[in-house]
Amino acid sequence: MLLYMSTGSPQVKSTPLHSVSVAGAVLREDGRLLAIRRADNGTWELPGGVLELTESPEAGVRREVLEETGIEVEVQELTGVYKNTSRGIVALVFRCKATGGAEHTSEESTAVAWLTPDEVSAQMSEVFAIRLLDALDDEGPHVRSHDGRQLISTP
C-alpha cells in the first residue's frame, strides 16, 4: 500500500501479513470426530495446515487430512473461520466426510483417533475443540478469534 505525502512522494505503509490455514472436521457416521496428536508439541488437534499458494481451500483440506491421517475425505462445507490474533493465522475449517483410506500417523502426527465430542472437549484446548464442536451444528459458519490459548469474546 502506498501513501502519498503532501509533496507527492510515496511513503510505504507497513501492512500486517496473515497466514491462511485449512483444517478438516471429519465426522464419522457414529458421531466421532477425527483428531491427531501433533508430533511437534503433543497436543490433540484436528488435521490441517497451511494452505499452499496455488491450491484451493478444498484441495488443501483434502491434502492435509490425507497427509496427516491417511484418511481420504469429501469436503462438504465451511463451518468456521478462526483467527489467532497473536500469530496472525486465519484458519478455515470445513466439515468433511471420510471416503476411504486407513488411519496412519505421519511426520506431523504421533497418533490418529476418532474421538467423541466429550473426548474432544476433555483432550483438546478450547481453541481447537471449538473448531470440531462448531462443525457439529448447522448454525455456521462460525467466526471466532482467540489469542492462541483462549477464545476472545467479540462485542
Rank of each mutant, 00 (worst) to 15 (best):
14 S>F: 02
82 Y>E: 03
54 T>Y: 15
102 A>L: 06
75 V>L: 06
84 N>M: 04
67 E>K: 10
131 R>P: 03
52 E>W: 11
104 H>C: 10
26 V>L: 02
19 S>D: 10
85 T>L: 13
43 T>Y: 13
25 A>Y: 04
104 H>P: 00
102 A>R: 15
82 Y>H: 01
105 T>W: 01
69 T>Y: 10
99 T>Q: 06
54 T>P: 00
127 V>P: 07
55 E>D: 14
41 N>P: 01
67 E>Y: 07
22 V>H: 01
27 L>C: 08
53 L>A: 15
109 S>V: 03
97 K>F: 02
99 T>H: 06
136 L>Y: 12
48 G>F: 07
61 V>Q: 07
146 H>G: 01
2 L>Y: 06
46 L>D: 01
149 R>I: 00
28 R>D: 13
2 L>G: 01
2 L>A: 05
127 V>S: 06
44 W>L: 09
33 L>H: 02
147 D>R: 10
60 G>H: 07
51 L>D: 08
2 L>W: 08
127 V>L: 04
142 H>V: 14
97 K>H: 04
47 P>M: 04
36 I>E: 10
148 G>D: 01
26 V>S: 01
101 G>K: 01
72 E>F: 05
77 E>V: 05
85 T>P: 00
80 G>D: 08
101 G>M: 07
126 E>P: 01
48 G>H: 04
90 V>F: 03
107 E>A: 14
12 V>E: 15
6 S>P: 03
79 T>F: 01
91 A>E: 13
122 A>Q: 15
140 G>L: 10
64 E>P: 00
59 A>Y: 06
142 H>R: 15
75 V>Q: 05
64 E>M: 05
111 A>R: 10
110 T>E: 13
18 H>M: 12
133 L>A: 11
34 L>D: 06
135 A>E: 03
10 P>W: 01
136 L>D: 10
39 A>E: 09
126 E>S: 12
65 V>T: 10
80 G>I: 04
136 L>C: 09
